[in-house]
């Protein structure tokens, strides 16, 4: 990994960030075309740099590029699309392509759990709410992004930092190990050694090594569930203590006798 690769990556991230900034919904005339061009260029550049420099060539790297491109495309559409229903659906696309990436890493259990939990339950609930709440015309908060510049800046600086750190030549011994592991993770080498089915391994790790974390997560979920129940049980005061305002027996409009 040469420093020039790192700078190339930073440049690509800056390009991507600029493209996304142009794509974010803002009032005024549309700047979609340059945004799309910049983003596509950045994405293609990123993937080719990764493919050439970082990922060791193997029979699955094409799939990796494909699904990660879909995931990044979907993620950018989640925040740039003006209709919330479409945003939620692009979120589903992201989840599915990330699940596919997990399958490539032989983490089938995680992949399916991701689909069941996110795509099958959580995003459906989002859609449910959006469908119930959405007005027929586009609302203001859907057509303009809040703080688009800073959001894009922070997001892409973080991404650049992480990626740059991951691909930069290791200096300390600890970082060397991390980098070495990362290099091994490049899809071909380490995975071949994994057993065919690893659900039992996941379960064993969860219930032995990470038992405390698991319990804490469970307690957190319980707390949030209790909170949700408490919130939804809040009584909304109705005039006359829940009784119908008109006397029982007068239903609907009052009609004169004919």
């Amino acid at each position: 990994m040469t420093p020039s690769t790192g700078y190339l990556l930073y440049l690509l991230f800056a390009m991507g960030g600029a493209g996304l900034y142009l794509l974010l919904p803002q009032p005024g005339k549309s700047r979609a075309l340059p945004g799309v061009a910049l983003s596509v260029l950045a994405l293609a550049g990123l993937l080719s740099v990764l493919a050439v420099k970082v990922i060791a060539p193997s029979d699955t790297s094409a799939y990796f590029c494909l699904f990660s491109a879909i995931a990044i495309f979907g993620a950018s559409r989640v925040i740039t699309h003006r209709k919330p229903v479409y945003s939620a659906l692009y979120f589903v696309l992201v989840v599915i392509s990330v699940a596919a990436l997990l399958v490539l890493q032989r983490a089938e259990f995680l992949a399916v759990a991701l689909i069941i939990v996110y795509a099958g339950a959580i995003i459906v609930t989002y859609l449910f709410v959006i469908m119930l709440a959405q007005q027929s015309h586009e609302t203001v908060y859907d057509t303009r992004a809040r703080e688009p510049f800073f959001a894009v800046l922070v997001g892409f600086v973080l991404m650049a930092a992480i990626t740059g750190k991951a691909v930069e030549p290791a200096t300390t011994s600890e970082a060397k190990i991390v980098t070495a592991q990362f290099a091994q993770q490049n899809l071909a080498g380490a995975i071949e050694g994994l057993p065919e089915g690893n659900t039992a391994d996941v379960a064993a790790a969860l219930l032995t090594k990470y038992i405390v974390v698991l319990e804490i997560a469970g307690v957190l979920l319980l707390v949030s569930m209790v909170g949700a129940v408490a919130l939804s049980r809040k009584k909304i005061p109705v005039e006359g203590h829940g009784l119908p305002t008109r006397p029982l027996g007068q239903i609907g409009k009052e009609v004169e006798p004919f």
Binding site: V112, A119, T199
Partner: peptide
């Protein structure tokens, strides 16, 4: 014959809501 066969069917079925 995925290792997570049952979960695969559940996951696919849960997508049917869409």
């Amino acid at each position: 014959s995925p290792d997570i066969g049952l979960l695969y069917i559940l996951g696919v079925a849960s997508m049917g809501i869409y």
